[in-house]
């Protein structure tokens, strides 16, 4: 739930999603769901010459399970807040 919440705070930010087949897609984060499926707008495929398959695609839905990394804008992430929230969630997990 924590990571899902983090992604929700990053909507409308520019991110780069790297898939497990090395395909990199840059775009504006429009939405995420509980599975960390990602909706991107105004997409741009890196190395488009090698991947012309998506030339006519302007926005897309990426299945969470195929994501390796998401590069996030550093300025949009409050690391102190993240660490506090992570500790809090870890505590709650232990109580259960």
């Amino acid at each position: 739930m924590l990571i899902f919440s983090v992604f929700k705070t990053l909507t409308d930010q520019e991110v780069t999603v790297e898939l497990k087949n090395d395909l990199c897609i840059k775009g504006t984060l429009k939405s995420v769901d509980q599975f960390l499926n990602i909706r991107l707008d105004a997409i741009q495929v890196l190395d488009e010459a090698r991947h012309p398959h998506m030339m006519a695609v302007k926005n897309c839905f990426i299945r969470g399970s195929v994501v390796r990394y998401v590069q996030l804008p550093t300025s949009a992430v409050d690391t102190q807040l993240l660490e506090d929230a992570t500790r809090r969630e870890a505590m709650n997990q232990n109580k259960r």
Binding site: V6, F7, V67, Y69, V70, Q71, L72, P73
Partner: peptide, 11 residues
Amino acid sequence: NLDMLFVRGDG
């Protein structure tokens, strides 16, 4: 090098 990165846990 990457500034800020989300890493999916299954990897």
